[in-house]
Simulated assay, not measured.
Amino acid sequence: MTNPMRGVFAVPTTPFAEDGAQNLEALSRRIDEVVAAGVTGVLGLGATGEALALSPAEREAQIKTLVSAVDGRAHIVIGCMAYTPAEMSAQISRAAGWGADAVMVTPPFYGGLEPDAVIAALHPVLAAAEVPAMVYNNPHSTGTDLLPDHLAALADTGGLWSIKETSGAATRIRELRETLGQDIEIFVGADGIALEGFAQGASGWVAASAWLLPEHCQRLWALADSGDWAGAVELWTKLGSALGLIEGSSAFVSLIKQALGRRGHEQGPVRAPLPTADTESLTALLDAIAALEEER
């Protein structure tokens, strides 16, 4: 499948109000700011968005809010993560019906499945998907590392749009590109190795950090995509410090939320059981962002 959706996809957090409900007004405001920075799209209801902590009604409200706030200015991808293929397909149908341009699925989590079993589960899901699908390879969270040859077995479904690659393997982006060719988009999914992924032929970047620093993330991609590697390396040496602090924290969702709150974009707390970032980590991130912005 050839699809023009490539570039930076910002991954929203889910803002919560003081009473614990979703703060959809805050979400809409931040969406407007992030889209205005020039990102290609928004990937909602991923791990950064605390999707597994949301009720079905909250998922519906958030998807409809994303579609309304983006208003056709960027692509919308919705995470459809579930244990069973049937539930994945149901989530995909609902997301497509509410206006999503594409969806993201993961291997069934907590199953300890071998890659061949994962591919067998995902194959009918992608074949029946009403919109293009991204497969998220995240062995740290799912327990299954999908190698290029495994993922190639999904190409005949007609529904495989892209791969979000987060294994951290040094040469994996290049190997995926060599195996899957140019018709499947390959996205860097780990913020701390974005530039390395671009250099290996990535189609773009699914970036939690772009919710916090959309202008910088978009500029890094634009420099690399245009072939200005000197400019990209120069920016990366400044941006990488902040992204490394986010990527390396087990409380990265809270860290992004708190940093946004300190910068005037209140996101509220995380929902249990996610951890809350400590003051030292938040201070380090804010200092790194301040240093980055001083050098612009």
Rank of each mutant, 00 (worst) to 15 (best):
residue 2 T to P: 03
residue 7 G to F: 00
residue 19 D to Y: 01
residue 22 Q to K: 03
residue 22 Q to P: 11
residue 25 E to S: 12
residue 25 E to H: 11
residue 28 S to K: 06
residue 29 R to K: 06
residue 31 I to Y: 01
residue 32 D to K: 09
residue 33 E to H: 00
residue 40 T to D: 00
residue 41 G to A: 03
residue 45 L to D: 07
residue 46 G to L: 06
residue 46 G to Y: 01
residue 47 A to Y: 07
residue 50 E to M: 02
residue 55 S to D: 06
residue 57 A to H: 06
residue 57 A to W: 02
residue 62 Q to L: 12
residue 63 I to M: 05
residue 64 K to S: 14
residue 64 K to A: 14
residue 70 V to E: 10
residue 74 A to W: 03
residue 76 I to C: 04
residue 79 G to N: 10
residue 80 C to H: 02
residue 80 C to P: 08
residue 82 A to H: 06
residue 90 A to C: 13
residue 92 I to T: 06
residue 93 S to R: 07
residue 94 R to D: 15
residue 98 W to N: 01
residue 101 D to W: 01
residue 101 D to V: 00
residue 102 A to H: 02
residue 107 P to I: 13
residue 109 F to R: 12
residue 109 F to Y: 09
residue 110 Y to G: 00
residue 111 G to N: 13
residue 113 L to N: 05
residue 116 D to V: 09
residue 121 A to H: 08
residue 121 A to K: 08
residue 122 L to M: 12
residue 123 H to P: 07
residue 123 H to Q: 11
residue 126 L to M: 05
residue 130 E to L: 03
residue 138 N to A: 11
residue 139 P to E: 09
residue 142 T to R: 01
residue 143 G to K: 01
residue 143 G to H: 03
residue 147 L to G: 03
residue 149 D to I: 15
residue 151 L to I: 14
residue 152 A to S: 13
residue 152 A to I: 10
residue 153 A to P: 06
residue 163 I to R: 01
residue 166 T to G: 09
residue 167 S to H: 07
residue 168 G to M: 12
residue 168 G to K: 14
residue 169 A to V: 10
residue 170 A to W: 04
residue 171 T to P: 03
residue 173 I to W: 02
residue 173 I to K: 02
residue 178 E to N: 11
residue 178 E to A: 12
residue 180 L to G: 01
residue 180 L to H: 03
residue 181 G to I: 06
residue 183 D to M: 04
residue 186 I to Q: 03
residue 189 G to T: 12
residue 190 A to D: 14
residue 191 D to W: 01
residue 192 G to A: 10
residue 197 G to S: 07
residue 198 F to R: 10
residue 202 A to M: 06
residue 208 A to G: 15
residue 210 A to D: 06
residue 214 P to N: 09
residue 215 E to P: 08
residue 216 H to C: 05
residue 219 R to E: 15
residue 222 A to Y: 02
residue 224 A to V: 04
residue 224 A to T: 05
residue 226 S to G: 12
residue 227 G to L: 07
residue 233 V to R: 10
residue 233 V to F: 04
residue 233 V to D: 14
residue 235 L to T: 10
residue 236 W to Y: 04
residue 239 L to A: 10
residue 249 S to M: 08
residue 250 S to E: 15
residue 251 A to F: 00
residue 255 L to R: 04
residue 257 K to H: 06
residue 257 K to L: 09
residue 260 L to D: 13
residue 260 L to R: 00
residue 266 E to D: 12
residue 272 A to V: 13
residue 272 A to G: 14
residue 276 T to F: 03
residue 277 A to S: 15
residue 280 E to N: 11
residue 284 A to I: 07
residue 286 L to P: 07
residue 289 I to K: 08
residue 291 A to C: 07
residue 292 L to E: 08
residue 294 E to F: 14
residue 296 R to G: 15
